[in-house]
Amino acid sequence: MTKNSSHASRIGQKSAKWIYGLTMFFLVLSGFGQMPLYKRYYIADIPGLKWVSDFYITHYLHYLAAIVFLGFISYKITDYLLAFRKTHLITLSGYIRGVWITGIVFSGACLVINNFTGKWFSDSFIIFLDLAHTGFVMLLFITAVYCKISKKKWIMARVG
């Protein structure tokens, strides 16, 4: 790898971290905004944050953040398969986080479909989707905190 491409790779990694972090922040902010919490617990009273108690705004923002997130994870998965698969392994914590993200994406996609006109799923499945979506987010959050503290990476270099 040339000096220039190595520099570009570092910038790319930093950008990816920022995109992932910011997207996650807005997904979580707008996702919890789907529950009536922000007005009750004074978050919407903070100057400049009144909009977080508007369910339509947070709903729209959640969709926008989800679009960026889907593009980002598709990029990272393809990037790994094409450029890193031969030299790097996905770690156990990487697989675990991958499972939680798959759950979030699947349940989220079903909820997006459900929001179109029509009766798409049974009432009990919709309740399951609501709970599963929140549950997977909580599991990803706990796993992410653990990985941050114990410095677990998504991928590691193959040995030998």
Binding site: S5, Y56, H59, Y60, Y63, L64, A66, I67, V68, L70, G71, F72, I73, S74, Y75, K76, I77, T78, D79, L82, A83, A109, V112, N115, F116, T117
Partner: peptide, 30 residues
């Protein structure tokens, strides 16, 4: 009231394709 969000939902199908294309482009360039 549901239209604004539903109208951008199509982008959720396009976004993963764009992600794959961007990574493939980067790999090809590299």
């Amino acid at each position: 009231t549901m239209a604004d969000a539903n109208n951008i939902a199509a982008a959720m199908v396009i976004a993963p394709l764009a992600g794959v294309a961007a990574a493939a482009g980067k790999f090809y360039k590299l």
